[in-house]
Write a protein that binds this DNA or RNA. Structure first.
Lengths: 237, 237
DNA sequence: AGTTTGCAGTGACCACGGTCACACCCCGGT
DNA sequence: ACCGGGGTGTGACCGTGGTCACTGCAAACT
């Protein structure tokens, strides 16, 4: 839960309600209207918000808790794209272009989300031009995150390198929001980390072991701390 | 050049000027205004439209020719995300969110493009709410293409599978626009195909050889034809 | 208590594919 | 005609990392 904010924005710390990151630039009536949209709900761990290939009837904002975005191949192999955090807006692309979801969203801790029905969202965007621009910005963030995902998979030499990249990213995110030390609590199993880094469970175990032995990271229970960012950086190449 | 249209839209064939795919839904004055934007230019093969980490001063529409979108790691390894085709709008995300380009765009054949300065584009989007929505749609396409890229890299068993996925995609694109046979002209070298599929040049050569021997594809000079879509499909898993 | 279930750690094995080393071919230049 | 260079085809080698098969370990249930 204190694992935080990947792409920090200026408003991040200031906003008491983190569900409104996208809104920080909305003004006046638009903001008021937006807040009246949608309905908030509280979800237990492991609940599916939406699924790959479902048709999109609503976008959802994460208010609290982490959400795993993944997709699955016919053979049952699954790939985790990213862990979405409070403030992220899921399914925006599908809602806007009226297509099906490409990914499955599942909570990995108890979470609070706000669902906004597609037609309400569209009507809102229709009404406020500035909001459309913000939506476009949000989409371009979504794009970048997919892009960096692909880039990490494609451009790192070793599998350990990809893992290092993921840890580094999270360490940096932690700095952006909480204390100055790059530590965060890991809500994923080794298996899930493997799916995220495109490798196998065993390799993750071994790599994490090696990272510790090499003094790159420190693990105590489920809290990770990055000791040598530059070391990880080198590996992730 | 007759290699065509990846995500076909209804307007694709009807538009005489393919540079306006994004505009097909624009109406009246907005459309007229848009056409007056930007400036068209003709580029030789191998010219760089923009580069990774350049700050974005303009988005560009491809009117003719294929454009390679790639990114490079510190070690000099390069990954090709996709081959952009006439009708694609490049750098939209960077233009809207005011960030740097994540990729390098380079023509692989003589091309005609239209550059639209960033502030003109923003002013236009500001003025026409509907256009912002279309921009958002275009961005969501961009997102999907990055997503499928990552998905292909992550979820296919073999390297041959990834290559099969790429060929299949292009074969399907060809059907969408030209004749009913899945044939297209390959403008990439094996080396480039390797960078696209995340493998090595030699492996591409061998895989293509095997695909032919297995009757999955047919290669004559630089024209490829997909004979067994289902066969490729199985491999790409 | 005991049992079950899910996650983490570790060794052994071996295949896929990256790398290096060639030979060949086509085309363009001088 | 000669060369040179870029692209392609192919063999041999061997390291990374996926897979399998276990063993611990801790929390959850009965």
């Amino acid at each position: 839960m204190q694992h935080l904010q990947p792409h920090a924005t200026t408003c991040c710390k200031a906003c008491t309600d983190r569900s409104m990151r996208i809104l920080c630039d909305l003004s006046g009536q638009a903001r008021i209207d937006f807040e009246s949209l949608g309905m908030q709900m509280r979800l237990p761990k492991r609940s599916i918000i939406f699924q790959e290939d479902d048709s999109c009837d609503a976008a959802t904002i994460i208010c609290e808790g982490q959400v795993k975005l993944s997709c699955t191949s016919r053979e049952g192999k699954t790939h985790i794209l990213k862990i979405a955090l409070p403030g992220d807006l899921l399914g925006l692309g599908a809602a806007i272009s009226g297509t099906r979801f490409e990914v499955t969203a599942e909570t990995i801790e108890p979470a609070v989300v706000k669902k906004i029905r597609r037609h309400e969202l569209l009507a809102f965007l229709e009404k406020y031009g500035q909001a459309s621009m913000l939506a476009a910005k949000a989409l371009s963030e979504e794009y970048k995150s997919a892009f960096f995902d692909a880039r990490r998979l494609a451009l790192s030499e070793s599998t350990a390198g990809r893992l290092a990249g993921v840890l580094l990213e999270w360490g940096r995110a932690a700095v952006g929001c909480s204390g100055a030390d790059m530590s965060f609590t890991m809500a994923l199993t080794h298996e899930e980390l493997a799916n995220l880094a495109g490798t196998s469970r065993e390799t993750v175990t071994r790599a994490l072991g090696k990272f510790q032995r090499d003094g790159l990271i420190e693990i105590q229970g489920s809290t990770f701390r990055v000791l040598s960012p530059s070391g990880l950086e080198n590996l992730s190449s």
